[in-house]
């Protein structure tokens, strides 16, 4: 009842918000974008990042860049032919898209008006690699000026923002593969997440090393409303997107499985079967240690060393161990599945 009330309320809010849009929505009309004001640079936007790169900081001739200072992309070509050549294969280089930099001021849309660049003999220009000491915020603001929403709406306060990551750390702004290819994406992420690469070599792993499951299949590196930059709002929602058979809801639940898959699974790789944190019987014994003999319940509390001479104990260890009998470990929908055996 409460759920339906909330759903109705949300629907009403949404209809109100979008009523204006829906009534005027049209497609294929060329979008008219206003000419962007050049990014204003102040001394605080620069960071002393080393003696070799202090020229910008000292001179700071870019302060007060104005729109009158645009020279046009032709002026850039003389020295930067290599950069401009690749722009054709980048979405940023498409003049026909009114949102793209080359439909506006060309190179100067992102790098700032070029007139001071000439006046200052090469120092005054916004470098997205930070070569002139541009601050992280300034460099990211250049990109976020156009790419603020959508998958980047949670960038602010995301862990990558907190770590002072810059768009340029992962993206090659001028190149064709600005949106990182499936075949190369994991290596981009492994540059920092080195332990995750090692985990993909383990006996049980998702096909990450084969590039058939890649980081962005589960994570949004630009920030998310879920834990660990997951694209969904919870760990289990994320796992269910590929493993919908585990979703239920089931008649008989195994509560940790309903709450958080990672309580039992090490998702990037494990040496135990099915990505488990530990071998079967001991993993279960971390939570189960029944003491009564009724119905044989106390078998779960047993001391299970590797005693191969006692055959009645071994089936708790080999094969699928506890899951030899408690097969519906993620939940059972069988009326006789109260202890997850059916």
């Amino acid at each position: 009842m409460f759920y339906n009330l909330r759903l109705s309320y949300l629907s009403a809010v949404i209809l109100l918000l979008f009523s204006n849009l829906l009534s005027s929505a049209e497609i294929l009309e060329p979008v008219t974008e206003p000419v962007k004001e050049p990014i204003e640079i102040t001394p605080e936007d620069t960071v002393e990042s080393g003696e070799a790169e202090h020229a910008f900081k000292k001179a700071n001739p870019c302060e007060g860049m104005t729109a009158e200072g645009f020279l046009g992309t032709e002026a850039c070509v003389g020295c930067h032919q290599d950069k401009i050549a690749t722009m054709h294969s980048s979405p940023h280089g498409r003049k026909a898209d009114p949102r793209s930099p080359f439909a506006r001021q060309g190179c100067e849309t992102c790098h700032g008006p070029g007139v001071s660049h000439f006046d200052a003999k090469g120092n005054c220009m916004i470098s997205l690699t930070g070569r002139y000491g541009e601050s992280v915020k300034l460099r990211n603001d250049v990109c976020l000026g156009c790419h603020k929403g959508g998958p980047r709406k949670h960038w602010a306060s995301s862990i990558h923002e907190a770590e002072d990551m810059v768009c340029d750390n992962c993206h090659s702004i001028h190149s064709r593969n600005d949106v990182i290819h499936r075949e190369s994406q994991t290596e981009v992420c492994f540059a920092c997440h080195k332990n995750i690469r090692a985990q993909t070599f383990r006996a049980s792993s998702h096909p990450i090393a084969n590039n058939r499951v890649i980081c962005s299949d589960c994570h949004n590196p630009h920030g998310s409303a879920g834990p660990a930059l997951l694209k969904q709002f919870s760990i289990n929602e994320n796992c269910y997107s590929c493993h919908a058979e585990k979703r239920g809801p089931f008649l008989w639940e195994h509560y940790p499985a309903s709450e958080d898959c990672t309580l039992c699974h090490r998702v990037h790789g494990s040496n135990h079967q099915a990505l488990l944190n530990k071998p079967g019987p001991q993993l279960c014994q971390q939570c189960h240690s029944n003491i009564t003999a009724m119905g044989g319940l106390n078998h779960i509390g047993r001391f299970l060393d590797f005693d191969s001479t006692t055959s009645t104990r071994s089936r708790f260890i080999v094969g699928q161990n506890c899951v030899n009998c408690h097969i519906k470990i993620h939940g059972s929908n069988h009326p006789s599945g109260a202890v997850l055996q059916r």
Partner: peptide, 18 residues
């Protein structure tokens, strides 16, 4: 028919795509 000449000369943007 609608688009004016691009700011970037064709000589530059026609650089081969691989």
């Amino acid at each position: 028919q609608e688009e004016p000449e691009p700011i970037v000369p064709l000589a530059y943007i026609s650089e081969p795509v691989f």
